[in-house]
Design a protein around this nucleic acid. Structure first.
Length: 117
DNA sequence: GCGGTGACTGACA
DNA sequence: CTGTCAGCCACCG
């Protein structure tokens, strides 16, 4: 088998793995590109995850549950993709503040503070 | 083969 | 909070 063939095969498997991971994100939950990459066994390759999702046309893949590491939607605010993703997230009951997904509370104080304001 | 380009990220100012 | 920067690596011309 040629080296190139082996490379293409691995590349294909990795793409599948990435898509599997994304499909396994439960509704109402989100993950960052970096997390998806790690779960797919490809630590440090967030950019590739992004590319795979961009190329992917499978409507069953919940691409909208994938956000940046800081919890924000990657697209420019107001763009068609942004609005679409926001809509899908809200439909699943994901709590958002603007373009940012509310992070899981780290401390009780922080949580209370947010609730107060 | 080489350089530019991202649906990215963590660190730092 | 915002902005910059160096890594990152598959893909494309």
């Amino acid at each position: 088998m040629r080296r190139v063939d082996a490379m293409n095969r691995d590349s294909f498997r990795q793409r599948q793995k990435i898509l599997d991971v994304v499909r396994n994100i439960p509704p109402g939950q989100t993950a960052s590109y970096g997390e998806v990459a790690r779960r797919a066994g490809l630590p440090g390759r967030a950019r590739w995850v992004a590319r795979v999702l961009a190329d992917n046309d499978d409507t069953l893949t919940p691409w909208h549950r994938v956000l940046r590491s800081d919890g924000r939607i990657v697209f420019p605010v107001g763009s068609a993709s942004f609005i679409e993703q926001l809509k899908r997230l809200q439909a699943e009951g994901v709590s958002l503040q603007g373009d940012r997904v509310r992070k899981p509370p780290k401390t009780l104080d922080q949580w209370l503070w947010e609730a107060k304001s």
